[in-house]
Structures are given as C-alpha cells and as structure tokens.
Amino acid sequence: MTVVTDAFTARHGRAPAGVWSAPGRVNLIGEHTDYNDGFVLPFALPHRAVVAAAPADGPVSRVRSVQEPSGAVEFSAASVVPGDVDGWAAYVAGTCWAFREAGHPVGEVELELDSDVPVGAGLSSSAAVECAVGVALAGLAGVEIGATELARIARRAENEFVGAPTGGMDQMASVHGRAGRLVFLDTRDDTVELVPFDLAAHGLELLVIDTRAPHAHAGGEYGARRADCERAAAALGVPALRDAVLADVERLPDDRIRRRARHVVTENERVLEVVRLLAADADPREIGPLLDASHTSMRDDFEITVPHVDVAVEAARDGGAVGARMTGGGFGGCVIALVPAGAVTAVTTTVQQAYAERGWTAPLVFPGTPSDGAGRVG
C-alpha cells in the first residue's frame, strides 16, 4: 500500500482519495467446472493487487503500474469501449467500461497500481486487478455495490473487453474471500457458502508451487476445452454439463468429447465431496485422494497439464504430500499440495530437486492461506 500511496503523492502532489485492494486466488478443487454451471471451491490469497486512486483533474483517465515501466496508459473512462485499450491496461479500462455498462457513474480517474500476485501462474492476477479497480471506482463514486455484483462487473470486463473466455470463479473468490474460509460457489446462480478450512488445527499446510512453466490461456487451448464442453452438453441434450449424468456421458460416441465431459461431471462430484467432508469437520487429510483424482482427471481426460506440472505433483507426493493437484486453467501455472506441517521442507526440497535434475527453472513454493477479499485498505 505504501508503494502506490507514495507514488501517487509524488506524481500528483496530493494524496490519493483512497487505496483499495483485491486478492488473487487458489482453487482448492473444481477445475473447468465454472463455465459449465458447476461447483468450485477456491479461496483468496494474501497476495493482492493494490490501487491508489483519485478523480482526475483533466478529461482523460491515466493508469500506471509499478510492474510496467513503460509509463502511463491513457483512456477515457466515460467513453472507452472494447478494442480501445489492449495489453495490461485493458483489465483496468475494461473494468471502467463494465462498471459504466452496469449503470454506475464513472468519472475520469488517476490510478496507481501495484500487485504481488504472480503473473502467469494461474493465481488470477487479472481478476485481482479488475476487482481492486472495481472497489476503487465504487469508492470514488460513493456507491454501494454488493460483492457478487462487483464480481460480475469484473468478469464482464475480462470476458467482453479483454476477450478471455473464463468463468466467474476468479472474481467471486476475490470479492467473497475470508480469512480461514473456502468460497464454495455454485456458478449457476452465484450462491456462496463459506466453508471452514483450518489446516493448522490438524497439523497440515497447503503449499502453492508456482511451476514457472509458461501459462497463457486467453484463447487457444482454454477456448477449445470450453467449446468441447458445449458440444458435449448439446449432444447430451442438457443446458450445461452441470446437468449431465456420468452414465450418459460414457455413452457419448466421440472419445475426446466423452473424456472432456467425464472430467467435468466427476470434478463436480469431487467438489461436493470435499465440501461435505470439511463441513462435517473431518480430518482434512481425507480430501487428499480427491485432490489426486482431480489431477489425474485433468491430465488424462481434460488434457490440460504439462510436464512441469505433472513432475511437481509427483515429486510433492514423493516428498510426503497427502494429496496434490494442478490448480487453475492449466497449460502451466501452479500446483497445490496438502502437506503435514513436518513434511513441508521435504516436499519443497523434493520438488526443487526434481526440477534441478531436468534443468528447469526452480519453482517458487509458498504457503496458501485463505485471506480476506476485496475492499478499502487506506
């Protein structure tokens, strides 16, 4: 927060009107189910995008990012439309556009942005920016916007302005996150239930392993998987794969479409089982096999893992993890591992050694701790 506040004050000769932030997220389980009207179980991370903001003095908006040394990007918040802004600033301009399209007042703004959410790691750095900008716009306009509406505005920015065909999980986790809780989301109606997740009480930690593998799915393979799911739902005669039954899925004639649908149907079942176990105060170790099964399904049926990810999962298990899986949209990004507290060093070392043996860039390993969602911080 200090970085963006100081930068804003130095640049404009006045303090910002406020500082707002929003977190990235990790998905405990429930991959590629969100755009199929299914169930997901993410939580907000401590890593956050932070925005210092104030009304602009002139007729244009400007945004600067600590992570982008190229300087300010200018646009008109009052008239910007999709196609006007690209690159990193599209997430900011797109949120202004979606905020305006939702019927809320948007004036020209000065924004200073900083973020410690790893980019390209599948931790929703873009949603963190969108939600931070969204709560800043609401704060500057003096309007009260519910968390779910804010998430929908941010999702529209990503889908329609940036052009990334993602579901709504990322933004919902960013706004609804709470310390010590998972965000159980039914994406059909955006209902949220907060599920306790106290690993420390059971002698466990959740490690997030940034595999450092390339991670880009704004189009291409991610979009292809979504199209496969839509074809499967059409073939089954259901509104979405949320409504499919596994027995019917297994009768689909096309092997690829059948496997894509099987992943979504079984992944929804795994999410519901994890929620059932945690809500019943079961030992979280019991969810380990479900995490493992999720990864196998993503690897074999949905085909979205890559060697860096698969190696990290296997090494984490070899080091003592009771369950591990890729998290995020796939094709790179992060792995999560449920680890006994006493095995954290062993798991970390085993994964690092597996990477070193292959000559790969060392992965980044850090604890995943459920944290609070978007809001004003200064």
Rank of each mutant, 00 (worst) to 15 (best):
residue 224 A to T: 05
residue 29 I to V: 12
residue 211 T to R: 10
residue 42 P to T: 10
residue 88 W to S: 02
residue 310 D to W: 01
residue 317 R to V: 09
residue 4 V to R: 04
residue 132 A to Y: 04
residue 117 V to K: 07
residue 151 A to Q: 00
residue 187 T to L: 07
residue 202 H to A: 15
residue 57 D to L: 11
residue 166 T to Q: 08
residue 293 A to S: 15
residue 173 A to K: 09
residue 204 L to S: 03
residue 243 D to L: 15
residue 334 C to M: 05
residue 87 G to S: 12
residue 35 Y to V: 03
residue 100 R to M: 03
residue 45 L to D: 03
residue 270 R to L: 11
residue 307 P to R: 06
residue 24 G to F: 08
residue 5 T to M: 14
residue 41 L to S: 07
residue 366 F to Y: 15
residue 358 R to Q: 13
residue 267 E to Y: 04
residue 182 L to T: 02
residue 344 V to W: 08
residue 32 H to C: 03
residue 341 A to R: 15
residue 189 D to F: 11
residue 203 G to Q: 08
residue 22 A to V: 03
residue 227 A to G: 06
residue 40 V to T: 14
residue 308 H to K: 00
residue 213 A to L: 01
residue 314 E to M: 13
residue 197 F to G: 04
residue 273 E to D: 14
residue 375 G to Y: 05
residue 22 A to P: 00
residue 155 R to V: 06
residue 360 W to F: 02
residue 287 I to T: 09
residue 3 V to C: 12
residue 78 A to L: 14
residue 122 G to D: 06
residue 346 A to F: 06
residue 61 S to D: 01
residue 251 R to W: 10
residue 278 L to H: 07
residue 139 G to A: 13
residue 99 F to Q: 09
residue 257 I to N: 11
residue 111 L to A: 08
residue 1 M to E: 13
residue 330 G to Q: 11
residue 232 A to M: 00
residue 18 G to Y: 06
residue 314 E to D: 15
residue 309 V to G: 11
residue 298 M to D: 07
residue 185 L to Y: 05
residue 4 V to H: 00
residue 193 E to T: 15
residue 277 L to T: 02
residue 36 N to K: 04
residue 90 A to H: 05
residue 57 D to A: 13
residue 365 V to F: 06
residue 275 V to Q: 06
residue 62 R to G: 01
residue 157 A to E: 02
residue 76 S to M: 04
residue 223 G to R: 12
residue 138 A to I: 06
residue 152 R to G: 05
residue 293 A to H: 11
residue 58 G to R: 07
residue 80 V to D: 03
residue 154 A to K: 01
residue 338 L to Q: 05
residue 244 A to H: 06
residue 191 T to V: 13
residue 290 L to T: 09
residue 183 V to E: 06
residue 239 P to M: 10
residue 289 P to H: 13
residue 245 V to M: 15
residue 201 A to L: 06
residue 172 M to C: 05
residue 330 G to L: 11
residue 283 D to V: 12
residue 102 A to L: 01
residue 95 T to H: 07
residue 42 P to F: 07
residue 179 A to T: 14
residue 21 S to D: 12
residue 244 A to Q: 01
residue 117 V to H: 10
residue 368 G to C: 10
residue 130 E to I: 05
residue 201 A to N: 04
residue 323 G to R: 03
residue 317 R to M: 04
residue 41 L to Q: 05
residue 34 D to T: 07
residue 148 T to K: 03
residue 250 E to K: 12
residue 78 A to S: 14
residue 337 A to S: 01
residue 16 P to S: 00
residue 300 D to L: 11
residue 210 D to R: 01
residue 93 A to K: 03
residue 289 P to V: 09
residue 357 E to K: 13
residue 370 P to H: 02
residue 27 N to A: 08
residue 118 P to Y: 07
residue 333 G to H: 02
residue 151 A to P: 00
residue 169 M to R: 05
residue 110 E to V: 13
residue 376 R to H: 12
residue 108 E to H: 10
residue 203 G to E: 01
residue 268 N to F: 07
residue 52 A to Q: 00
residue 372 D to A: 09
residue 90 A to I: 04
